[in-house]
Design a protein around this nucleic acid. Sequence first.
RNA 1: GGAGUGAUGGCCGAGUAGGUCGAAGGCGCUCGCCUGCUAAGCGAGUAUACGUCUUAAAAACGUAUCGAGGGUUCGAAUCCCUCUCACUCCGCCA
Length: 436
Amino acid sequence: MRGAHMLDIRAIRQQPDEFKRKLGRKKVHPAIIDELLTADEAWRANLAETERLKNLRNTTSEAIARKKKNGEDATDDIAQMKEVGNRIKELDDIIRQQDERIREILLSLPNVPHDSVPEGASEDDNPVIRTWGELPKFNFEPKPHWEVAENLGILDIERAVKITGSRFVLYKGLGARLERALAAFMLDLHTDKHGYTEMFPAFIANEESLVGTGNLPKFGDEMFKLEGLPYYLIPTAEVPLTNYYRDEILSVDQLPTKFAGYSSCFRSEAGSAGKDTRGLIRLHQFQKVELVLLVHPDKSYEMLEQLTRDCADVLEALELPYRQIEICTGDLGSKDAKKYDLEVWIPASNTYREISSCTNFEEFQARRANLRFRPDESSKPEFVHTLNGSGLAVGRTVAAILENNQQADGSVRIPKALVPYMGGIEAIQAPASVKA
RNA sequence: GGAGUGAUGGCCGAGUAGGUCGAAGGCGCUCGCCUGCUAAGCGAGUAUACGUCUUAAAAACGUAUCGAGGGUUCGAAUCCCUCUCACUCCGCCA
């Protein structure tokens, strides 16, 4: 028996050309689809044969039982069934291998992009949907956030590197307080105003969960694996939250399910050597409030807009200028059907940087994680649609606040909404004697 | 970490000297009947996956599933092995 896969094999059988065209937008070679269909056909032929033999064995076994009860001889039947049994074993072996190959191909195929996703070759082709807020004007040269932070003594990168290694940081004093305040503020906003249920998961997940969200088998290199154990440090709370109802069937009134989860996120950042080597932008560990939605398939695109809105609300409440872009085919992730990014203004780099990704995965994760719902009492289970968005990445939010709100004297103004979370502090001041 | 017990359908719970067991019984749920209302009562139904068939779905048929995987056997919920999880006791520990 075969578990659910990311793409519906039956749909591919029926409309192979449609899938070739759509997956072609993600640079999937059509030959893969042909290989898949060939393997599928052979698999089904063998399956039909072994099922026929099993049926024969079942009926004959019943006959043997009857004969024995009546004191009749059944040795011929038993001898015949021994052979049938061997043939079944052979066939089942072949079927298992074919099944694994099919599963391998299906698990490696990316999600089908939604028709509305704009065509494009790379991130340079992502259209800007809208921009919000006024860019800050400085009458001095704005410093990058790591300089602002170290001058204030609220971030200690040198010692973090001593303790652990590069791409790790340590928040100190009001820096640690700011990190904590932001997480609490974001969680409160999403739970109180946006109707999410707060979740605090374990930061370690097993392989099944990572297959469920689509991080495995393709992207194992991007995560930290625990030595000798089938466990990984989670790259995002998306993993535990999306897997929360794995292998379960929800009732329709449980939709939409909206989770807001805070966690540390661990990323190996393999392949990004030399990129964003300074500051809080790209770390092996950062904290994030993640929003995860399980929704009715008819509602998922509507919900993607709402989710993006919920994440944008955080930026607006924090008075941070940002823009929303739509990810084009060339930049779309393997798991994604459609995605918006929110990018926050980073003055010292004179650019916008991603601070939230809001994605509709449609059935992709639901199939892998076997996440279903029953539309009504009498109907069969269907796959839900899953979405998630960062609401927000905390480290990058700290960076954005430090850079956008820095003052000529080196202090940093705390956004009004955050002041209560900072114990009433309205600005982080440079200490009289800076201790680095 | 040591010792022991256990894992059955939405839930509870039978079933271990292997043979019409997808699985008794109860509860819950759905539909119908009945009764001023409610409750009770009566009757029927109530898993999932995959395959075949079908334009498609449903139905029908087949196969599989009694924690997971493997083995013995013509035949396994029932016997054997491995693993996972839960509970109890002891030790350790934030």
